[in-house]
């Protein structure tokens, strides 16, 4: 009974995080992006600096009509947002925010593989949406999504493998237990490659060719309205949470910090995640969208060699220090 209660509590907590953190990041994006462009951003909803803007957006989405195009494949069209969103909920289960069993949704032995595998499944949602919409722009968006995923899955996996090699385990809490501060310079290249590849996999600017609104009018999501569209947006921001959390755990030492007692590890995790989320927004504001061939070139000629170099470096150092 106690076990069941424990599991239920953890699931509930993860669910709450899943529902609130993406909204917080979305609101931060509204405000940070506005100020980086010399604007103020939302100021009215909720009274104080537009804090309730996304809640108002949600209400608006919920009121909209749920339209399925006449030529669309109805069932796949309707299923796609769930396929896009749920994997991130599962991934959140595996990310530890503090030391010990109590601070992670569920300890998974092959944590890295679980996380990367399930994140890859999320892209299926975009593919399904792109194909089932019966819209050529959506189809183009789906194609671009698939090409992007294929190009960036490899460097992501390789750099994650580098960390796993360094730690000697593929379990996320295990990696954090083995973390030392000098891993930071040691794995810095891998960290950057992982972060960039993750951004590309989330289709965040500057890697947002699949949803390029000015070229292919939001790609796979062209035909979506109302709640289903909101689910896709939520998936994107949940993806940011997951990516930043993962980068924190794998490369930035998670709950380890220069100061702070044992009980405050989760503060460090959240702080690092928040800083990374800010960087995600910052990159979005700063850089223009890459062209499709530039995107492929970046992955194959820069990120993959860099990640291979990182693996080689990790292996050499690992052998030397043993």
């Amino acid at each position: 009974m106690n076990d069941a209660l424990d599991v239920a509590l953890r699931l509930l907590l993860v669910f709450v995080v899943f529902l609130t953190f993406p909204l917080i990041i979305g609101q931060t994006e509204h405000k940070v992006m506005a100020h980086m462009q010399g604007r103020l951003g939302p100021m009215y909803a909720g009274g104080f600096h537009g804090w309730a803007q996304l809640i108002a957006d949600g209400v608006k989405f919920a009121q909209k009509e749920d339209v399925v195009p006449a030529g669309a494949d109805r069932r796949i069209f309707q299923l796609a947002p769930a396929v896009a969103l749920l994997p991130y909920l599962l991934v959140l289960l595996a990310i530890p925010i503090g030391p010990g069993e109590g601070a992670v949704g569920e300890v998974i032995d092959a944590g890295i593989f679980f996380v990367l595998a399930v994140m890859g499944v999320g892209v299926l949602g975009s593919l399904m949406a792109g194909w089932a919409s019966a819209n050529k722009f959506s189809l183009l968006g789906g194609l671009r999504t698939a090409a992007q995923l294929l190009a960036y899955e490899l460097p992501m996996l390789l750099t994650a493998a580098s960390v796993a090699m360094a730690a000697g385990t593929v379990s996320l809490p295990g990696i954090l237990d083995a973390f030392e501060w000098w891993w930071l310079p040691w794995q810095i290249v891998g960290a950057i490659v992982f972060f960039v590849a993750g951004l590309a996999e989330l289709q965040r600017p500057p890697f947002d060719m699949p949803v390029a609104d000015s070229e292919i009018i939001f790609g796979a999501y062209t035909e979506y309205t109302g709640l289903r569209f909101a689910l896709f947006l939520l998936a994107e921001y949940a993806g940011i949470v997951v990516l930043c959390g993962l980068t924190t755990v794998l490369f930035l030492g998670g709950w380890h910090g220069p100061w702070g007692a044992d009980g405050l590890g989760w503060v460090w995790t959240l702080l690092k995640t928040a800083v990374l989320a800010f960087v995600v927004i910052w990159l979005r504001v700063t850089y223009p969208r890459l062209r499709e061939d530039q995107l492929q070139k970046l992955s194959w000629t820069l990120l993959v060699p860099l990640s291979l170099t990182q693996i080689a470096l990790t292996g050499i150092v690992k052998v030397v220090i043993q």
Binding site: M36, G38, M43, W282, Y287
Partner: peptide
Amino acid sequence: GLAKGLAVTLRTMTRKTVTEQ
């Protein structure tokens, strides 16, 4: 050049906005 771009946006963020309410 990439770093310069980041600096521009960050500097803009710390400045006063031009929005007129």
